[in-house]
Design a protein around this nucleic acid. Structure first.
Lengths: 228, 228
DNA sequence: TCCCGACAGATTGTTCAACAATCCGACGAT
DNA sequence: ATCGTCGGATTGTTGAACAATCTGTCGGGA
């Protein structure tokens, strides 16, 4: 009771909210996630437990726990008695991912959102423009992700946010193939601007329509690049 | 080679698609999932690793892997160095769950779906009616879940299906409190019928509107029962 | 009386070593 | 060339061990 009295109930709540120090398994998972996002580990690559355990200086069991996390996020697939492999998306999976995005993002956009959250969308759009001006393709890609994440964040749902995060993480897996074209994301700048403008103008339904068209186009592009 | 020869390529494909024998960890997770769904384990209950390991006759490490699975599904929460507890939903979480349902189910319904899949929705409706006629509240509840699962299945997206499954699993966690009222699900029978009828009539948008209203009402009820 | 710190017990987090089950590739026989 | 067989490698699972952390209790001091 150093400061104002908190009471036992508040203390219990604080305990529940205390900063959870990430476990070793979590950190291993985070490291692998990073390598997956960076394209260090390409789809289809086999991840051997003992190798990773050795490389990261942790036990095999801990690596196993990390694999369980990643498998739950679909970033990695487990083949019993064979090992885990970096997930690779079939053409059907691409459509599937976009189906989720259509459901989640359009629903989020239709809700409108508070002015503060709309401002976050705007910020992501500007971030993209700045990246384009600086010819930073890398930044352009992340700005684009921020944009879509901000759209979902409009509804303020923790669960929708994590769903979106996972979908984006999945997409990063096979986006590497697409970004060989250095100007890939640039074509989306206008779309983002228009969607954001419609949203700011208080016309969420129109914004949703624009987004829907955008997603359909994007899916087509992806499918084409992915060779189908 | 008991039956017709398949050839090496087909065999490789079969190997990839072969029925994955569930690992011990998977079976432990399944068992716990069942107990959670059945209400044997109520929200807030602490799950001690050693106890469960002993009860199910497996090693503590294996239980740990099962916990990782369940944690990824939000059915249990891990408190570092304290243990895992059966997840309990705060009032805000209830709204959050319904937010996901609104996004997913409405989007699915708007798509219409193939006649075959519409038929599956109809089947779930009839299943509910039959359960009501037989005064089987248990069956009524599962029929209701089948109904909503069938709606999502209209789009035929593996990812949306699993999202819906997880959401329903989460709901079963706190639905136990609600079903003390034996006639809880009965009130949904008419809604389901109307939604299904609109869908069959080729008016998916009207069906979506009905579902939206249904979900809002359901959320209100749940929030009320859950004491808020 | 109430608060605070130390202590003991219990539980988790992590590692290590071992072994069975399974898979993969090579090698040799037909 | 096809088919078994065998050996090596990897996974699945177990059991034990130990440090780190948490919880509750017990006593001392204000």
């Amino acid at each position: 009771m150093t400061t104002s009295d908190a009471g036992p109930r508040a203390l219990a709540a604080a305990a529940r909210l205390r900063i959870a120090v990430p476990s070793v398994a979590d950190r291993v998972a985070a490291e692998l996630r990073q390598q997956l996002a960076d394209g260090v580990l390409l789809p289809g690559t086999r991840l051997t437990e003992s190798t990773i355990a050795e490389d990261l200086g942790v036990s095999r069991n801990t690596v196993r726990e990390a694999f369980a996390e990643l498998a739950a996020e679909r970033l990695v697939v487990r083949q019993p008695n064979r090992g885990v492999f970096v997930a690779s998306l079939a053409p059907g999976d691409i459509h599937d991912v976009y189906t989720v995005r259509r459901a989640v993002e359009v629903a989020a956009l239709r809700g409108g959102g508070t002015p503060e959250r709309v401002a976050a969308v705007r910020a992501a759009v500007e971030e993209g423009k700045a990246a384009a001006a600086a010819d930073d393709e890398e930044a352009l890609g992340t700005a684009n992700q921020h944009f879509h994440r901000a759209i979902v964040a409009l509804v303020g749902s923790r669960r929708l946010d994590t769903i979106m995060s996972q979908v984006l993480a999945e997409m990063r897996l096979f986006f590497h193939k697409a970004t060989v074209d250095a100007h890939f994301y640039r074509s989306y700048l206008d779309d983002n601007e228009q969607i954001c403008a419609a949203l700011e103008a208080g016309e969420p339904d129109r914004a949703a329509e624009l987004l829907l068209a955008y997603l359909d186009r994007s899916e087509q592009k992806q499918s084409a690049v992915h060779g189908e």
